[in-house]
């Protein structure tokens, strides 16, 4: 079990891998970086998942509803041994490669459900959660990670109602609430308002955390109701798009993009300096 410090180091390494890839290819870097801390704790601390036995009934299921965060997912899968981080960098956006702009299980068996179009992962996750219960599996959880802009999709709320109706306490939905969508600030584009209040109103166990604070993320996971409970949990993770790279933070233009060699060197130096100063190395 990794410590907070080890998880922060792991998150830094994921960011370095993302930026290394972002130096080669256009990726959804903004939303990858905002959700890096959540994904790192999820994959490297919280989830039961054995890459040697990917159909193990007792595993936790992960469905990436914000399918464009495929790179941060792939690097975390690499960190638990599904493949190597270098594989991701070498094959990303390559013809016949396993990794691209959105996760695809035709070529990557560690992807439980192919996603990309928004508003699909969460409703499928509800069905998976109901299926686990029907099989008598009351120990596995289903984790789904959504975007905040994605909350505009009506299908999310169809599923949100059903998750409560079918008492899916094994379903953990995480919203990467970075405040930006492709065309601008969410409050200006769609006026979604308070997302956590909406999940509360639908009857979910709703938790709000600083989604870029590893300690808070770990605590939220540690305090989850047991997998056999009956209220689905929504973790609204308040994050910063582009987190960790000063010129990308909270910038609409870094929804997707590519960085130069100079930017890469500067970004990595910054990330290392921040980690080292925090832990007084």
């Amino acid at each position: 079990m990794k410590t907070i410090r080890e998880l922060e180091l792991a998150a830094m390494n994921i960011r370095i891998q993302l930026l290394t890839l972002c130096n080669k290819e256009v990726i959804h870097i903004g939303g990858d970086l905002s959700v890096t801390d959540v994904m790192t704790v999820l994959w490297q601390y919280q989830m039961k998942y054995d890459p040697q036995n990917i159909t193990d009934e007792s595993r936790d299921r992960f469905i990436l509803s914000k399918g464009h965060a495929s790179a941060v997912t792939s690097f975390n899968q690499a960190s638990v041994g599904c493949f190597s981080a270098q594989d991701v960098i070498d094959e990303y956006a390559k013809d016949q490669g396993r990794f691209s702009m959105h996760s695809c299980n035709l070529v990557n068996p560690y992807v439980e459900v192919s996603t990309g179009s928004l508003g699909h992962g969460m409703p499928v996750a509800c069905g998976v959660a109901a299926g686990l219960r029907l099989k008598g599996n009351y120990t596995s959880r289903v984790y789904t990670v959504m975007g905040d802009g994605e909350q505009s999709e009506g299908s999310i709320w169809e599923a949100a109602a059903n998750a409560v109706r079918y008492r899916l306490g094994n379903l953990i939905a995480i919203v990467d609430n970075n405040g930006l969508e492709a065309d601008g600030r969410i409050d200006e584009v769609t006026g979604l308002g308070n997302i956590a209040d909406k999940y509360r109103a639908f009857g979910w166990n709703t938790v709000e955390i600083d989604g870029n604070n590893v300690t808070e993320i770990v605590r939220a996971f540690d305090e989850l109701p047991s997998a056999d409970s009956y209220l689905p949990t929504c973790i609204v993770a308040h994050t910063i798009k582009g987190k960790g790279v000063s010129f990308m933070e909270d910038q609409i233009r870094w929804h997707a993009g590519k960085i130069s060699d100079e930017q890469l060197v500067a970004c990595i130096a910054d990330l290392r300096a921040n980690y080292e100063s925090k832990w007084s190395i």
């Binding site: 299921r61 439980e112 459900v113 508003g119 699909h120 409703p123 499928v124 996750a125 509800c126 069905g127 998976v128 959660a129 109901a130 299926g131 686990l132 029907l134 099989k135 009506g154 299908s155 169809e158 599923a159 109602a161 059903n162 109706r165």
Partner: peptide, 19 residues
């Protein structure tokens, strides 16, 4: 699932994921 055909199909896909 109530009057929610999109969710009906996605929910079914999820059940199929579990066999």
């Amino acid at each position: 699932v109530g009057i929610a055909e999109q969710n009906m199909v996605s929910f079914a896909a999820g059940l199929a994921c579990e066999g």
